[in-house]
């Protein structure tokens, strides 16, 4: 089992495997996001209250839900870095932070655009869901700048790993903020595909598809930037040198 674990952490192994799987991931991402977008924009019936602004929520819910995956992902990678000193884990964590900041920003922006018409406000400082999501955005920017501030990469990796583990607390706060406190933000929707239940099936199929698509996109973007990181950090190793002379 430990042999397998060590192999998983080998940058070379990851690079070669991802080369094989990348085309399929690209196809899957394009197909799923494309289908979900067309469905949402053309076929999704208007909400009985909000009209077509419910289409905004398909994107918002998918990106927001996915953005909560970053701190747990970075915390797991960070723990592996701290305990087993696996090189690959830190490369993933480093690139995840910047991507996570993007996810958080898009969550805030799309939510604001929806809120401006539905709630009648772009932003409410008193809403704990909104503020905790903003906090996640700043935390991720913090991880990114911590990494660039500490030049010694080993020290930077350790500091970022610790911050990532601590940041997971905020994810729990974001998730349960709408249940623990009263907020302007609505609580999470009950997922239901049965028609005749409180949630119409149309909205949830579109959203579920979009969530899947956004997760595929996350993996794609993260794998692309991790591959760059591998080439950069392993540039002196024999396999990268050989790769340079063969691959275009």
């Amino acid at each position: 089992m430990w042999v397998w674990f060590a192999k998983l952490g080998s940058p070379k192994w990851f690079y070669e495997l991802s080369t094989k799987w990348l085309p399929w991931l690209v196809v899957a991402t394009v197909v799923v996001i494309g289908t979900a977008t067309v469905w949402a924009l053309l076929f999704l019936p208007p909400d009985y209250q909000q009209g077509y602004t419910s289409r905004i929520l398909v994107v918002h819910v998918a990106v927001a839900g996915t953005s909560l995956a970053f701190f747990p992902l970075m915390a797991v990678a960070g723990t592996i870095t701290l305990v087993w000193k696996m090189k690959l884990a830190d490369m993933v964590a480093k690139n995840a932070a910047a991507l996570g900041a993007w996810f958080s920003f898009i969550t805030l922006a799309t939510g604001s655009i929806w809120g401006s018409v539905s709630w009648g406000t772009w932003w409410e400082w008193s809403d704990s869901r909104l503020v905790s999501m903003l906090f996640q955005f700043f935390l991720l920017l913090g991880v990114v700048s911590l990494r660039s501030a500490l030049e010694e990469s080993d020290k930077a990796a350790k500091a970022c790993a610790l911050l990532s583990i601590v940041g997971c607390i905020n994810v729990v706060v974001i998730k349960y903020s709408v249940e623990w406190w009263n907020t302007l933000h609505q609580p999470a929707s009950p997922v239901s595909i049965e028609s005749g239940s409180a949630n119409g099936p149309e909205f949830w199929i579109a959203t579920a598809l979009m969530i899947l698509g956004v997760y595929l996109f996350l993996s794609l973007s993260l794998i692309l930037s991790t591959r760059n990181e591998i080439l950069m950090r392993e540039r002196r190793s024999l396999w990268v040198q050989e790769l340079m002379s063969t691959e275009k």
Binding site: I33, T37, L41, P46, G51, Y52, T53, R55, I56, V59, H60, V63, L99, W102, I106, A109, T110, I113, W114, S116, V117, F217, L220, S221, L224, S225, R227, N228
Partner: peptide
């Protein structure tokens, strides 16, 4: 979009830019 053209298209536009940037920059 039922009178919500600005909001709906702004969000989908943002979504496209978000995806494009995070694929093109690593490439």
């Amino acid at each position: 979009m039922g009178g919500y053209a600005f909001n709906v298209w702004a969000v989908y536009g943002l979504f496209v830019v978000f995806i494009a940037v995070n694929i093109i920059v690593p490439l």
